[in-house]
Design a protein around this nucleic acid. Structure first.
Length: 550
RNA sequence: GCCCCCGUAGCUCAGCGGAAGAGCAAGGCCCUCCUAAGGCCUAGGCCGUAGGUUCGAAUCCUACCGGGGGCACCA
């Protein structure tokens, strides 16, 4: 990455300045390198002289000037100057920048990879909806954040496992089975009183009908487990199909029941007790959450002998750590904010490196339709499914919008607005840029004298629009690094727009096929190819299609 | 009552210690020219309020005000 190269040059300059006696010797801090907001401030800048002013007891501008003076000779920076209170602004060498186009072409689709993970194993657990109904819009945000994050981690050198955690036992599943049975009786014409707390969705009736078709009216003799099994199977198939429409597939499915079956939940209880972090009181087993600053202790096992949901969660996270993941990302709805500290504290109490667990909480999606908020509860009938939203706005738009806001900001997904604004959709803006690259490259035709020449001289690319486009193409690795570091995939959508804009401006200002000279055409062909690689990569990371024509 | 998230342009939101931004909406321009699903220009801001920390705060701390969500031997 360019900022890293500049950082190293500045660090060298500081060392050289100290050695030459121009600056006093002090511990060298991290050198921040940032992109200035204004073009006149150069391509990159560092404020390091400002923060060194106090320890060095020198005026910031004086330090900045020493840095500039001792900057080692290099091909990257053409000019560095001191500005304002003591910023050092760097102007990149246009020749060096242009040459990066060849570099992008040589590396191809992986040109922006950054090796932050060094092949370490990371797990992203996401969606994790229990098979009690179709995925909702809220699950959609979860799914898209999780999968995009997984893509980003892969691009930054992590070996990623995508995982789905579910519970197919327990009270909710029994209610599911009984709901289906009641609906089946209803379809058969029996008078039925359908309890309020049962699953109200129309899909329950669909499942009942399907069972009738497959097994006949005799199915009515069966008990709830029979219906639960079939319903679960059908709902899971449905969930997987919905995710598939968004291009999402999990590598591993983990069932909560497995932690009961292999006894690991009881080993967790025993281990916590042995370390003094669990105790029995009023017939229940408690976790000493107060030892970690919580306001009260939490129940792990009820007085009935039945564990709370916390216990298998703890066992699951212990298992994740034992499987060797060095980064464990849980994509969770904001309603889980309160419970995660207990899990992490319990895992820490057991002596594991709990810091490897990094939950990310996304705020709720409010779906608005016809100006009215639609509540998303799986148990009520009036929810809108993720499938319906995909039907309306398309999978690419769902992927883009769901990850286009910071995960800790609430988002409003207005279907009417999304449809009304479809022409102004940023999804098309970005995809159209890609289609335009394809449009130009498809016109390569030796008989018309337009070919892709690997020997073309990219240093001819000196137009401001060309320079800006190359700059955006090269920025992807910085964006990836930021997304990966902070586990914030939304930066990618902003980048996608910036990259597309740079291309659209280039497209208008710099004709490729009808450039002034054949040499310039050849050079621009290379740039178009590089832009296509960048756009395709960005769209792929976002899980979107990169159409060749629109 | 306690905890978490959010208050930045009319709207939707980026930026989260270093030199106030984008998209949409509004007004005006640009196709004999590689797809106008595009580009250009204009206008629009005490960055919720008040203190504090800092050479420097939209960004960190405290309090308050608004909006949302969570606080069970429910999952």
């Amino acid at each position: 990455m360019i900022p890293d190269r500049i950082r190293h040059l500045v660090e060298e300059a500081l060392r050289a300045a100290v050695k030459a006696g121009d600056l006093p010797e002090v511990p060298v801090p991290d050198v921040p390198v940032e992109r200035p907001k204004h073009a006149q401030h150069g391509d990159f800048a560092t404020p390091v002289a400002l923060s060194l002013a106090r320890p060095m007891r020198r005026a910031p501008r004086q330090i900045a000037e020493a840095i500039v003076r001792h900057l080692p000779p290099n091909a990257v920076i053409e000019r560095a100057d001191v500005a304002g209170p003591g910023f050092v602004n760097f102007h990149l060498s246009p020749v060096w920048v242009a040459r990066q186009v060849d570099n992008v072409l040589a590396k191809g689709a992986h040109y922006a990879d950054v090796n932050l993970g060094h092949g370490r194993h990371a797990q992203v657990e996401f969606v994790s909806a229990n098979p009690t109904g179709p995925l909702t819009v809220g699950h959609g945000r979860n799914a898209v954040i999780g999968d995009t994050l997984a893509n980003v981690l892969e691009a930054t050198g992590w070996n990623v496992t995508r995982e789905y955690y579910y519970n197919d036992a327990g009270r909710q599943m029994r209610i599911l089975g009984e709901s289906v049975k009641l609906r089946l009786l209803e379809v058969l014409g029996h008078p039925v009183e359908f309890p309020k707390e049962y699953y109200q969705g129309e899909y329950i009736v669909d499942i009942a009908r399907a069972i009738l078709e497959r097994y006949g009216p005799e199915a009515a003799e069966e008990e709830w487990p029979f219906f639960k099994e079939i319903a679960q199977e059908m709902i899971f198939a449905d969930i997987k199909a919905t995710l598939e429409r968004l291009g999402i597939r999990h590598d591993v499915l983990t069932n909560e029941a497995s932690f009961y079956e292999d006894g690991s939940i009881w080993r967790v209880v025993e281990a916590l007790k042995a370390k003094g972090y669990a105790y029995e009181e009023d017939g229940a087993v408690w976790f000493r959450a107060t030892a970690f600053g919580a306001d009260k202790d939490r129940v792990l096992v009820r007085s009935t002998g039945e564990p709370t949901y916390r216990l298998p969660d703890i066992a699951y996270h212990v298992q994740k750590l034992e499987r060797g993941f060095e980064l464990i990302v849980d994509v969770l709805g904001a309603d889980h904010v309160a419970e995660m500290p207990d899990v992490i504290n319990a895992v820490r109490a057991l002596g594991y490196e709990a810091d490897r667990i990094r939950p990310i909480f996304y705020q709720f999606v409010t779906l608005v339709r016809h100006g009215q908020a639609v509540k998303m509860s799986t148990r009520r009938a009036n929810f809108v499914t993720l499938d319906e939203v995909i039907d309306e706005v398309g999978g690419d738009a769902v992927r883009f919008f769901m990850v286009s806001r910071s995960h800790d900001a609430q988002m409003e997904f207005d279907l009417e607005l999304a449809k009304a604004q479809s022409d102004e959709n940023p999804v098309y803006y970005v995809q159209y840029a890609h289609a335009r690259t394809a449009g130009i490259l498809e016109r390569m035709a030796p008989e018309r004298g337009v070919i892709f020449d690997p020997e073309a001289d990219v240093t001819l690319l000196t137009h401001p629009a060309e320079k800006a486009l190359i700059g955006e193409i090269l920025r992807l690795s910085e964006v990836l690094s930021q997304c990966s570091h902070r586990l914030e995939p939304h930066h990618l959508t902003f980048y996608a727009r910036d990259l597309a804009r740079a291309f659209h401006i280039f497209y208008r200002d710099c004709p490729v096929l009808t450039a002034e000279t054949a040499e310039l055409t050849a050079a621009r062909m290379k740039l178009v190819k590089a832009a296509q690689i960048a756009l395709a990569r960005t769209l792929a990371l976002l899980g979107m299609k990169a159409p060749k024509q629109m």
